[in-house]
Design a binder for these strands. Structure first.
Length: 600
DNA sequence: GCCGTTTTCGGCCCGACTGTTTTCAGTCG
């Protein structure tokens, strides 16, 4: 049973307890345990194997005992007893927005819905027949809402639900630009998961500082691409755009904007932890500011904050960068003054992964721009160095001799461009670049490049591009074998995921990290928007183990080189400081690192 | 049921919105 399934099980138990009117803190405890397991960086089952279940926050002796029974026997008697007298059909409804335990229970009981397999569509049919509206606590509106919610839920099941970061970024930008046209808008910020730079975004959250709440909200609700208004209040509104994406707007006056920014940036877990910490100091936090609880029977006055810095300071913390706000130890670190000095965009001195349009006759895609065009862009980005890591020539279509010839020709062409004295009047290009290659690690762990051809590259980036379904052990052996060649320095897109499309393969990270540390190898954060691979949680594990990270845009065009900032976001979410990132090294230090002799 | 620089007992984040109510329950973030 994986973490996702475990979380679902624990939520099911929480829902059952809710119907049974158990102590509400017990219910919360189960929900917290579910959240906690969902956010783990390793499988709970693996932790159980190592006898470490009790190290999971929110899991105490009771739940740990139940999980132990689950992993040993495949079931939990106590859980089965709790849900035994509840209708099975209520549970699938819990995954539909707007349904909690009580509504789900009430509806399946009164409507006598028995089949968990079909309960969702059965409920929709019931709503369409009009037999939900007369039920106490429901009405025409909620009946209609049930139909609409289920219909969009059914659609959502078939297409991917979360946006990639740049996609969400672009939508947000459009709304930000629109809002800024209104003169009453003093300031606009994108917040929520977008501000925290999470790899995929559910809803887009926007905050506005203004003195005219209603006018700004009305202006927002007139945004031309809105399909439907979900809710509107005095301090904000939620809408669905024609493209199906949800936008939440919150407005606040400038002098209280700091608490609003903080609240609306989240994450939820960060905010909960923050409020718990504040409560121990007699402070109650909300999106409006901070109340002092110490004085009894006196009217509580809210202290307002115009900046987040002031808000955090009032709780005795230094300002926490949004990328860290996940309740992963950042609040404790802020209390103890040991927050990391996160790597910044201006620390980045080069890119370690790109594809030009030079035709090596590979079996993967070429880029669209020439070496010169890529170097021109690298110059514009202010880099010290760049890396060409085109795909290796396809093995099946060439003899070794042909491959060597192609590699030789490519090296000569790049060197000619880099060493040429002329041609700099018309266009400014970067003159320092590494001649690398992205080489496939074949299913048996061999590299897809004949040994003599290595002479024509400075170093290699390796990656898995085929046979994704090998076992964890076999995949680990395969990667380590490919990674072992002395000229191979970087493992590209290490988990192989494609966001919303492909999970990626399993690797034994203990072994990978140890290997990297021991042999001076580096893991890539691939900055391609659909990859963002390594993921943030593994980045953090890697640097804890002393493994260095390289940012590579995997650009197939000059324009895509700007994606570096999304990879950088993963690095920051993984707590990376400047020294953790290879790209912050000067050119000469990189040369030394790959043990290259100064060639140019 | 969990947890501990106010505690191993007695606390447990905070407020908004909707729909159905006439003071609130349910759900969400």
């Amino acid at each position: 049973m994986n973490n996702q399934e475990l979380a679902l099980l624990l939520r099911k138990i929480a829902a059952a307890y809710e119907i049974k009117k158990e102590n509400r803190f017990k219910i919360i405890a189960y929900q917290k345990a579910a959240d906690s397991i969902e956010h783990l960086t390793s499988e709970a089952k693996d932790l159980w194997d190592d006898n470490k279940l009790n190290e999971i926050p929110g899991i105490g002796p009771a739940i740990a005992g139940h999980l132990d029974e689950l992993f040993r026997t495949g079931k939990v008697k106590h859980f089965e007893k709790i849900i035994s007298d509840l209708p099975k059909a209520m549970f699938p409804l819990l995954s539909i927005p707007g349904f909690g335990a009580k509504r789900a229970y009430k509806l399946v009981t009164l409507l006598k819905l028995k089949n968990p397999e079909t309960v969702i569509s059965d409920l929709k049919q019931a709503a369409k027949k009009g037999i939900i509206a007369p039920i106490e606590g429901f009405g025409e509106k909620s009946q209609q809402a049930i139909i609409e919610t289920i219909e969009s839920f059914e659609k959502g099941q078939t297409k991917e639900n979360r946006m990639t970061l740049p996609y969400a970024d672009a939508i947000a930008q459009e709304i930000v630009d629109y809002l800024k046209k209104k003169k009453e808008v003093i300031r606009v910020d994108r917040l929520g998961s977008l501000r925290r730079m999470v790899a995929t975004i559910g809803d887009i959250d926007i905050a506005v500082a203004t003195k005219q709440f209603q006018e700004v909200i009305d202006w927002f609700l007139n945004f031309p691409k809105i399909k439907k208004i979900i809710e509107r209040g005095e301090a904000g509104a939620s809408v669905i755009l024609k493209n199906g994406r949800q936008i939440d707007l919150r407005v606040q006056k400038p002098q209280a904007y700091g608490a609003m920014l903080q609240y609306f940036t989240g994450s939820k877990h960060h905010n909960i932890k923050l409020r718990e910490v504040a409560l121990k100091k007699g402070l109650s936090l909300s999106e409006y500011g901070i109340k002092k609880l110490k004085i009894k029977n006196e009217k509580l006055k809210i202290e307002e904050f115009n900046t987040e810095e002031a808000f955090y300071r009032a709780i005795g913390l230094s300002w926490i960068p949004p990328e860290l706000r996940e309740d992963q130890g950042e609040i404790e670190a802020a209390q103890e003054g040991r927050l990391p000095k996160l790597v910044r965009l201006k620390d980045i001195k080069g890119d370690f992964h790109s594809h030009s349009n030079f035709d090596l006759e590979p079996s993967h895609d070429l880029g669209v721009n020439s070496f010169t065009e890529m170097l021109e862009k690298a110059y514009q980005l202010g880099y010290q160095y760049f890396t060409f890591s085109d795909h290796n020539p396809s093995v099946s279509n060439h003899t070794n001799k042909q491959i060597i010839q192609i590699m030789k020709r490519r090296k000569a062409e790049i060197e000619q461009i880099l060493l040429s004295k002329k041609n700099t009047q018309t266009r400014k290009i970067l003159k320092k670049a590494f001649i690398a290659l992205e080489i496939d690690i074949l299913p048996d762990g061999k590299l897809a490049l004949p040994e003599p051809a290595f002479e024509f590259i400075d170093f290699a980036v390796v990656a898995i591009h085929s046979s994704f379904r090998q076992s964890r052990q076999k995949m680990t052996e395969r990667v380590l074998k490919g990674f072992s060649h002395p000229k191979v320095k970087i493992l590209a897109h290490p988990i192989g995921r494609l966001l919303n499309e492909r999970e990626g393969y399993e690797l034994d990270w203990d072994k990978i990290f140890d290997f990297c540390k021991k042999h001076n190898k580096v893991l890539e954060i691939n900055c391609h928007p659909a990859r963002l691979d390594l993921p943030d949680v593994l980045v953090r594990e890697a640097i804890k183990r002393g493994v260095k990270i390289a940012l590579g845009t995997d650009s197939h065009s000059a324009e895509a080189m700007e994606n570096i900032r999304y990879g950088l976001a993963m690095a920051r979410r993984g707590w990376c400081e400047k020294d953790d990132i290879l790209n912050t090294m000067d050119y000469n230090r990189v040369i030394k690192w790959i043990k290259l002799s100064e060639r140019r």
